[in-house]
Computed example of a mutant assay.
Amino acid sequence: MKMESSDKVKYVLWFAQEHVNFRAADIESVASIFNIEVNYHTEISDVPYCIVELPSEKEAHLLASRCISLRSVLELWGHGKTNEELHNSIQQTPKDRMYPHFVSEKSFRLTVETFCKSLSMKEKVERIESFSYLPIEGNVNLKDPDVTFYLLEYFGQDSNNIPEQPYELFFGRWVADGQRSLIQKLSLKTRHFLGNTSMDAQLSLLMANQAKIVPGSLVYDPFVGSGSLLVSAAQFGGYVSGADIDFLMIHGKSRPVRPNQKVREKGESIKSNMQQYNLSSKYVGVLVADFARPLWRPDVRFDAILTDRKFFKIPQNEL
């Protein structure tokens, strides 16, 4: 992780507070996929933010287009440990970065978001009014603004000892949201075919990122089960296949796992999951096989072997 300091444009990576240990790998894997140079001004840790420098806004959009751990990316205009420091920092930000977004032709919204503390509406309005010195000319649009400004306040992580004032404050322009919506889209709650050990959508997506699945990748899961990893890999464009020793699971004949479900519905299978998410074109197929007895010829090569035990990225010089 490269740590640098410069006067170039910085961004705030604002994370969801889930699977914290996967954050760094998620960012670094996606950066590798798109060949993005990320210069870190703060380390990725258990706090929900990280300040980075990116070559341009294009790279910010690329990161957000794949990262599962990211809630959003902001172009950083101000940062401080107190309100005074924050506003002084904003006033030192080059005007040519901010002023194009203040014009009358662009509607706006200013959102206040906190971590580990809830604010009343009155407190939020007071914070919003503290930015009245900014020469914003556009109309307020709370539903679909052209530009969204964010004030982020971090109050630590101890919900039993919340300070009166935040430890860190950030102000900036929203650039992009991460891919958190995929977690809901691929949720096991609505998955057609499930098994006892079906991996949840968020972990499956994170693993697919770490395996650097890209459109056209040939992916194999030797312990495929109900195919959760195949679904996530296919979501990112991989052509997916797998094997499992469990004949009943592979053929959708195992005992149902949903409460009060006595028999499987007709057609339940890994293939039906692919159909559910319109990913049938990415589904190569699955086999009944024992991993201890290799079934592939030595010259067969996959771009990635992705399992719930470990994953492998095949070096390019071995393909």
Results as ranks from 00 to 15, higher is better:
I250V: 15
F115C: 07
P222S: 02
Y283L: 05
R109I: 11
Y167N: 13
S241C: 08
Q261K: 05
S65N: 05
I51S: 02
R255H: 15
S72M: 15
D221H: 05
G156E: 08
L86R: 00
Y150W: 09
S32A: 13
Y239N: 10
H61Q: 13
N196D: 15
G285L: 04
L229M: 06
W77L: 09
I128S: 00
E59D: 09
T190D: 15
A16G: 11
V284Q: 07
L295N: 11
E85Q: 11
K95S: 06
M274K: 06
A292N: 15
F312N: 12
S232W: 02
K266P: 07
N35H: 07
N35E: 13
P94I: 06
V52G: 03
D144R: 09
N139W: 03
M249N: 12
F102A: 01
L169Y: 00
K2H: 09
Q261M: 04
E28V: 15
A211L: 03
L110M: 07
L110F: 03
D46F: 10
E57M: 02
F302Q: 08
L86Y: 01
S118I: 15
Q92I: 09
L62R: 08
E318W: 09
L319R: 15
F312A: 11
L206Q: 02
M1Y: 08
I270K: 10
D158H: 10
N35M: 09
R180D: 13
A234W: 01
Q276Y: 04
E37Y: 01
L229G: 03
L194V: 07
P256S: 08
H87P: 10
D46V: 14
L182A: 12
P298M: 06
K212C: 12
V38M: 03
L287E: 12
S65C: 05
Q157C: 08
L62V: 12
D200N: 10
